[in-house]
């Protein structure tokens, strides 16, 4: 079964499965304990190290299992965890499990340009105003028409002393938006990198005097980024390319890491994201096998009723036209061969003396003959005429 085509072979929208996009990815932590070694943390000893890799490893037999920051004694107390996902994903949720008391303030950010710029997805705090300059999230979600980074309550401590940060992209999105039809929602869920900023430790919430602060370290595990590899509805899976980079296994005549453009010869229609209703596949230009390149022309596309806008480039085999569908000047269509035949166009071969020019009728192959001359190539005198010695008037009336 091909998820990207129906049983009849027609293209249909397809998407990769939901995965933990952070799994196995390298996490960049702004602070990790163990350098220099302390009583409880030694980066050089695997039995006592708490590296950031533990945040996105599959778990299993690793011991210890939690990443841990350095001991934070005074401001700034924020620690940043950054996970490059390798390519664009469409997020569904982000979660992080804390191994000790969860922070009182956490900011969740995303990048769509591999870490060059960042935008907030949400905030989690007991003090939204002082920490982030925001009002607490309304119960019904964003007030505006589009998605918005809201400030939610801080992660709650659980009975085991830890806690869970859980964020769903729906939390910041107004109800009723449909991913297929809403470019703002598509933008909202798209991310190439995720950043968690642990802004303020819980136990220091009420401490005003920095001298009185108890040393604190953040500790967490299981950083999960639930999402789908972003392929714009044109691939059902993502693969590693020859350079080890994650890319979509593009179908429907598309290409690029996210299937976000048409392949070079597939430009008969403009690229579009696939929807549940319409696959919006890129179609190959119709060049009858005589061209390898084409370009898209929006005006022709509109004039055709939005059906075809491809223009063939560099028609070969002596063909010409938008679809290489007729013969170029000096050639005519051989009716005995298919239009796609390499020899579909034959040279006019007009006689150098009998013909009045070198260009024949492109359909019939008839050359323009001088007076008294006949034949497809004007190579014979007509009945009632005979050859003369003059190349200007090669046939004269028989006396």
């Amino acid at each position: 079964a091909d998820p990207c085509h129906d049983q009849g072979g027609a293209p249909r929208s397809c998407v990769p499965g939901l995965v933990n996009a952070a799994l196995g990815r390298e996490v960049l932590a702004s602070s990790t304990c163990g350098r220099p070694a302390t009583r409880v943390c030694d980066a050089s000893d695997p039995r006592r190290a708490h590296p950031a890799a533990l945040l996105t490893s599959a778990g299993g037999t690793a011991n210890p299992v939690c990443w841990r920051s350095e001991s934070l004694r005074k401001a700034p107390l924020n620690v940043t965890l950054t996970v490059p996902l390798g390519k664009a994903f469409e997020l569904v949720f982000v979660s992080l499990r804390f191994c000790s008391a969860p922070p009182a303030s956490v900011a969740l950010l995303k990048s769509q340009d591999h870490g060059r710029t960042w935008a907030p997805l949400g905030f989690f705090s007991s003090r939204c105003g002082p920490d982030y300059g925001r009002l607490p999230a309304p119960a019904n979600g964003p007030a505006g028409p589009g998605p918005e980074a809201l400030c939610f309550p801080e992660p709650q401590a659980q009975s085991d002393g830890g806690g869970l940060l859980a964020f769903s992209v729906q939390d910041g999105s107004p109800p009723g938006l449909d991913l297929d039809s809403s470019p703002v929602l598509q933008d909202w869920v798209t991310a190439t990198d995720i950043r968690v900023v642990l802004t303020r430790p819980a136990m220091l919430e009420d401490t005003r005097d920095s001298e009185a602060m108890v040393p604190y370290s953040y500790s967490a595990t299981e950083l999960q980024v639930g999402g789908r590899c972003k392929c714009n509805g044109h691939a059902s899976r993502c693969l590693l390319d020859t350079q080890g980079l994650l890319i979509c296994d593009c179908r429907h005549g598309t290409e690029g890491p996210d299937c976000s453009r048409c392949k070079p010869f597939y430009c008969d229609r403009p690229w579009q994201r696939a929807t549940a209703r319409e696959a919006h596949a890129c179609f190959a230009c119709s060049c009858n096998g005589h061209a390898r390149r084409c370009r898209f022309n929006m005006e022709l596309y509109r004039l055709s009723g939005r059906r075809s806008g491809g223009v063939c480039l560099n028609c070969r085999h002596n063909t010409a036209g938008r679809h290489c569908h007729y013969c170029r000047e000096g050639f005519y269509r051989d009716p005995g061969r298919a239009l796609s035949d390499r020899r579909a166009c034959r040279a006019c071969d007009c006689h150098p003396v009998g013909a009045a020019g070198k260009t024949c009728n492109q359909t019939t192959g008839q050359c323009p003959c001088k007076d008294g001359v006949t034949g497809l190539t004007c190579n014979r005198c007509a009945p009632g005429f005979q050859q003369s010695r003059s190349p200007v008037a090669p046939c004269v009336k028989t006396p």
Binding site: H351, V353, G354, V373, A382, F385, S390, P391, V392, P394
Partner: peptide
């Protein structure tokens, strides 16, 4: 009636040297 093809050797190019096709 099928007429013979034009015989290039019969043409006199004396006054039309510039029109003479390359063979």
């Amino acid at each position: 009636e099928v007429m013979p093809t034009l015989d290039m050797a019969l043409f006199d190019w004396t006054d039309y040297e510039d029109l003479k096709p390359e063979v």
